[in-house]
């Protein structure tokens, strides 16, 4: 009888190991769309940042930590994701505070317009990369659409098992490691795809211009979290010029009111596009929706001056290994930029 128990236990262990291997094999490697790898890359350099950026694709395409360090000596990291919803920003911020306490947090306000989860794929790309913590559990339970179930996050194999019949070479190549795709969270886009025709004068008609309660509620929770940690929360709206992601005046008005009421700084960079020097014939890689690296450098330079002058982030002192770490990151950034 004892022999039988031993065999059963060994069999269970063997099955567990095999399933673990299969899980590593079938989980998407996101080599074709790098947005799935952004969250996970933070943990490799999760200390010594003065500023943390959170938000959706506008934030990781508009601000370059390397340039912020080079020009203003500000150490920063961009924890952005494709369509990162406001509650996901909150939980990622909560997760960040478990590693370090930045002096300032910058939140891109476009995501406030989404009141409920949009697509399961976005949830997975944002949340799967997080290390397991109460923050990850919070992120999952607040983002799940109805068809999703919590166990699919605990065991991604249950969600991605059907990819076994659609494996690619990268699934084997990156089975245990993952490709590095960002420069401290900035996803470099070197392409130039100018905006065609005359600039749009208005975005799509929206059903209702009041910002959803859920996103405002989590914005408030972010503000409280920053206040608790003595961190300044700064709201920004990155420049964009497309009818699809149009920042309607009603939204701008509501965020301005909220910022004044809570004493937060709020910068809407759309009207200041000329002042920043952004030219949509050279500084965008997708016809005006997002900035490419050249546009982002102008944007970061402009925003860096604001941070230094208005938010006391000038002449910051850093430890020896932070400075040397940034030296390497700068070299890597320029190597990638000019290649």
């Amino acid at each position: 009888m004892k022999k039988r128990i031993i065999i059963t236990v060994c069999a269970i262990l063997a099955v567990a190991v095999i399933l673990g291997l299969l899980q590593a094999l079938v989980v998407p490697k996101y080599t074709s769309n790098a947005e799935g790898l952004l969250t996970g890359e933070y943990y490799a350099e999760a200390e010594g940042h003065d500023v943390i950026f959170v938000g959706d694709c506008e934030v990781y395409e508009s601000f370059i930590p390397a340039v912020l360090w080079e020009k203003y000596g500000i150490s920063s990291y961009v924890r952005g994701n494709a369509q990162q919803l406001t509650w996901q920003s909150y939980y990622i911020l909560e997760d960040t505070f478990r590693y370090e306490t930045p002096k300032a947090v910058v939140f891109n306000v476009l995501a406030l317009k989404y009141g409920e989860p949009q697509k399961e794929e976005y949830n997975r790309m944002t949340v799967d990369g997080m290390k397991w913590s109460p923050s990850k559990i919070g992120a999952i339970s607040s983002s799940m659409t109805e068809e999703e179930s919590f166990i699919d996050y605990v065991f991604p194999l249950l969600r991605f098992h059907s990819r076994i019949t659609a494996l690619e070479a990268d699934d084997f190549k990156y089975i245990f490691s993952s490709k590095k795709v960002t420069h401290s969270g900035y996803l470099m886009q070197k392409g130039i795809d100018p905006m065609v025709g005359d600039a749009p004068t208005d975005g799509r008609e929206e059903l209702d211009y009041t910002l959803p309660e859920t996103s405002m509620e989590y914005l408030e929770k972010m503000r409280e979290l920053c206040a608790e940690n003595g961190t300044e929360l700064i709201l920004v709206k990155s420049p964009t010029n497309s009818w699809a992601y149009w920042w309607h005046d009603e939204w701008d008005e509501q965020v301005r009111e909220y910022a004044e009421e809570k004493g937060l700084a709020y910068y809407n960079f759309i009207p200041e596009t000329e002042a920043i020097g952004i030219d949509y014939s050279t500084d965008t890689y997708d016809k005006g929706v997002h900035l490419n690296v050249y546009g982002a450098e102008k944007m970061t330079d402009y925003f860096g001056r604001i941070l230094a002058e208005n938010h006391g982030l000038a002449e910051l002192s850093h430890s020896e290994e932070t400075t040397s770490a940034w030296q390497e990151r700068l070299d890597a950034y320029y190597k990638d930029r000019n290649s």
Binding site: A11, I12, A14, V15, I18, L19, L22, E120, E147, E148, D152, L157, L158, R159, H161, S162, I164
Partner: peptide
């Protein structure tokens, strides 16, 4: 072994979940 294999086959080849 057979039960283990069967379990893996269900998890990998089953038509279930999202």
């Amino acid at each position: 072994a057979l039960c283990g294999l069967m379990f893996i086959a269900i998890i990998m080849l089953g038509a279930y979940g999202f």
